[in-house]
Amino acid sequence: MKRTTGEKIFNVCNIIFLLLFAFTTLYPFLYMLSISLSSAAEASSGGFHLYPKDVSLTAYKMVFKNDNLIIAYANTIFRTVAGTLLGLLVTCFYGYALAREETPHKRFFTTVLVFTMLFNGGKIPTYLVLKQYHLLDNRWVYILPMLISAYNVIVSRAFFMSIPNSLNEAAKIDGAGEFKIFFKIIVPLSKPIIMTIALFLAVAHWNTWYDSLMYITDNKKIVVQVLLQRIIQESDVTLITQGMINPDATEFTSSTVKAATVIVAILPILIFYPFIQKYFTKGMMIGAVKG
C-alpha cells in the first residue's frame, strides 16, 4: 500500500500522542508499584516514584501472611467466574430477544429494563429485600443482583441488530429452533461483543466490594478487597500495643502496605484484558456472512 506524506505525518503524530497518553495512564500503576516495593522511609520522601530505589518486599510479606487471603481470593474468583458466565447468558439472551423483530411486547421489555438504569430503591430497602430472600451471608448475593444491567443489554442489542435477519430465515428454513440459531449462528458471529460484555461483567464483579462489606458477616465468604481493607486497618500490631497509637487511626498504616494492597487487588484482573484483545482484531466479521 502506498502512503502519502500526509498519512506519514499523521502516523507519526498519532504514535507520539498515543505514547504520551499511554504513559500518563500507566503512571498511577507504576507509582503504586514503586511505592509498594519501597522501604517505608523511601516511600515518604516525596517525588515522582517511577521505580523503587531500593527494593523491599516487606509490604507484600505483610499482605501475604494473612491466612484468609486464599479463601478471600477464592470467593472473588468464584463470583467473577460464575457471575460473568451467568450474567453473560442472561444479558445476551435478553439483548438478542430485544434485537429480534418478532419478539412480542418488545417495547414493554425495553422500558422495564431502561427504567432500572435510572431508578433504584436505595440502600436500606435493598437490604430488607435481600434479607427476605435469605441472601444475607450467602455467596449468591454477589451474583443474582448483578445478573443483568441495562447498559450491557442495550450495548449487546445494538450489535445483535447489525446481524442480518436473512441468516435467521435461512436457518429456520433448515428447521433450526431459536436456541439452536442463537448458539450455533449468532454466538460465533458475535464474539467481539460477547467478549466485551464478559470483560465488563468480570471487571464489575472483581471490583465490587460494597455488597461483601454490607451483606456478608461470615469471614469465610468475604471478597479479597474487603480483606485487604482489613489488613490496612490492622497492619501494625506493635504500634497499637500499649497505646502508642490510637487504634482508630488507620492513617498510620504505612503507605507501602496500602500500595501493596492496591496492586494485589488489581493485578489478577488486569491480566484478563490482553487475553480477550485478540477478539478485537479488525475484520472479525467475515465479509461473506454480512450478506
Binding site: 445494538a158 450489535f159 447489525s162 467481539p192 461483543i193 467478549m195 466485551t196 477478539y279 478485537f280 482484531t281 479488525k282 475484520g283 472479525m284 466479521m285 465479509g287 454480512k290
Partner: peptide, 8 residues
C-alpha cells in the same frame, strides 16, 4: 468492539 465488526 464495534470497529472490529466492520467488514474488512
Amino acid at each position: 468492539a464495534a470497529l472490529s465488526g466492520v467488514d474488512e
